[in-house]
Amino acid sequence: MKRIIVQTAVVMLFGIFMTACLENETELEKQMKQDDKRVLAYLNDNNIEADRHSAGMYYESINTNASGTAVLEESVVSFFYHISTMQNGGYTEMTLDSLNPQLYYHEYNYSLPNAMFYGMDMMRSGEKYRFYIPSYLAYNSFGDPEFFPSHTNFVLEIEILDIQSLDERNALELTQIEQKMQQNEWTGAETTDSGLRFLLTEQGSGDEVQANSTFKMHYARKYLDGTLIEATESDSPVTIRMGYDNLVPGLEEGVLKMQEGDKAILVMASELAFGTGVQVLPAALREPLIDEGWLYPWHVIEPFSPVIYEVEIVEVL
């Protein structure tokens, strides 16, 4: 349980999808040549004229927008997508909710497949590109019987809707949080200097949580729309040692305002929770990648997600 509430760390995949299960550079080079050959065959068989990117993938522009905002380092990109395997009858997935585009933080190692970074790097807002991706820029040796086999090549279509700075994204999240507070009639909530919304819903009478405390708590973590992400079992509170079990900043700030017996609602922007995260396409692959150890457990949270914690301090030890 503790693994689910740890603080987000910088993603350091170190090219794991480039080298996993390959014994040496010679094998990698051999696999890359095989991938390139299969991608070219796909393009030729489908009469597709595409340009080759220096990273190894191919691309074609569907819609261009010379006046659009360029994707730069640390940009927050909102986009629609369609991804499919190159095999006939293979796996396919796309944006289903036009009101909720995907979000992506533009830095290397913040997206899977890695080819997304190279693709976004050449795009502007309002543009739509299609990318033909060899497995060495995607999931390489990873395979799952429900999705695709190892060394699968992909076709990824991306349409960029908007580009924001981190400050602009945070301001938008704070607006969304304010709307949620009003919608749920969570009146009387305290807004701290960090932007955390703290609402005490039940007053306890026990010891206060201190910076060096060990305590037991129940919690439910939800997305801002109320969708449950995870919760403790009713008979199994989680034990936390402050300073050892790294809580996300907003949760740590919140519990330090509580005492044994307290119940509270904490609402926080992503910068106080799980931050930029990692964008994963296909999106349904996120949990299998976590299960197999290819992503950290906290990457279950979508990028730039404000969250709600419902917390009860059961006992201060």
Score class of each variant (00 low, 15 high):
residue 3 R to S: 02
residue 3 R to N: 08
residue 3 R to T: 08
residue 7 Q to P: 00
residue 9 A to L: 10
residue 11 V to C: 08
residue 11 V to Q: 14
residue 16 I to R: 11
residue 19 T to Y: 12
residue 21 C to G: 01
residue 22 L to K: 06
residue 23 E to Q: 05
residue 25 E to R: 00
residue 27 E to Y: 13
residue 28 L to W: 05
residue 34 Q to R: 12
residue 36 D to P: 15
residue 36 D to E: 15
residue 39 V to P: 13
residue 39 V to S: 07
residue 39 V to E: 08
residue 41 A to V: 11
residue 46 N to M: 02
residue 54 S to I: 11
residue 56 G to K: 00
residue 57 M to Y: 13
residue 59 Y to D: 12
residue 60 E to G: 00
residue 61 S to V: 10
residue 63 N to K: 08
residue 63 N to D: 12
residue 67 S to T: 15
residue 75 S to E: 11
residue 76 V to G: 09
residue 79 F to T: 06
residue 79 F to P: 07
residue 84 S to F: 10
residue 85 T to M: 07
residue 85 T to A: 11
residue 85 T to F: 09
residue 86 M to H: 11
residue 87 Q to K: 12
residue 90 G to E: 13
residue 92 T to F: 12
residue 94 M to W: 09
residue 96 L to K: 02
residue 96 L to V: 09
residue 97 D to A: 13
residue 104 Y to E: 13
residue 104 Y to T: 04
residue 105 Y to I: 03
residue 105 Y to K: 00
residue 107 E to A: 05
residue 107 E to M: 10
residue 115 A to D: 09
residue 119 G to D: 15
residue 120 M to D: 15
residue 120 M to V: 06
residue 120 M to N: 12
residue 122 M to A: 15
residue 125 S to I: 03
residue 127 E to M: 08
residue 133 I to L: 12
residue 137 L to T: 07
residue 138 A to P: 02
residue 139 Y to H: 09
residue 139 Y to K: 05
residue 142 F to E: 14
residue 147 F to L: 04
residue 150 S to P: 03
residue 152 T to L: 05
residue 152 T to F: 10
residue 152 T to P: 04
residue 154 F to V: 12
residue 160 I to F: 02
residue 164 Q to Y: 05
residue 166 L to D: 15
residue 166 L to Q: 11
residue 167 D to T: 04
residue 171 A to P: 13
residue 172 L to A: 01
residue 177 I to K: 05
residue 178 E to D: 14
residue 179 Q to I: 00
residue 180 K to L: 07
residue 181 M to Y: 00
residue 181 M to C: 07
residue 187 T to D: 11
residue 187 T to M: 03
residue 187 T to W: 02
residue 188 G to C: 06
residue 190 E to H: 12
residue 191 T to S: 06
residue 193 D to N: 06
residue 198 F to E: 13
residue 201 T to K: 02
residue 203 Q to K: 10
residue 204 G to T: 02
residue 209 V to N: 11
residue 211 A to I: 13
residue 212 N to E: 12
residue 213 S to L: 15
residue 223 Y to P: 00
residue 229 I to F: 12
residue 230 E to Y: 14
residue 233 E to M: 11
residue 244 Y to A: 13
residue 247 L to N: 04
residue 251 L to R: 05
residue 252 E to S: 06
residue 254 G to L: 00
residue 255 V to N: 09
residue 255 V to Q: 10
residue 258 M to C: 03
residue 259 Q to F: 01
residue 261 G to H: 03
residue 263 K to A: 06
residue 264 A to S: 14
residue 265 I to S: 10
residue 269 A to F: 01
residue 272 L to R: 04
residue 273 A to I: 01
residue 275 G to Q: 10
residue 279 Q to H: 07
residue 280 V to N: 03
residue 282 P to S: 03
residue 286 R to A: 15
residue 286 R to Q: 11
residue 287 E to R: 03
residue 292 E to W: 01
residue 292 E to P: 00
residue 293 G to R: 15
residue 300 V to F: 04
residue 301 I to V: 14
residue 302 E to A: 09
residue 303 P to I: 14
residue 306 P to M: 00
residue 307 V to S: 14
residue 308 I to F: 05
residue 310 E to I: 05
residue 314 V to D: 01
residue 315 E to M: 10
residue 316 V to W: 09
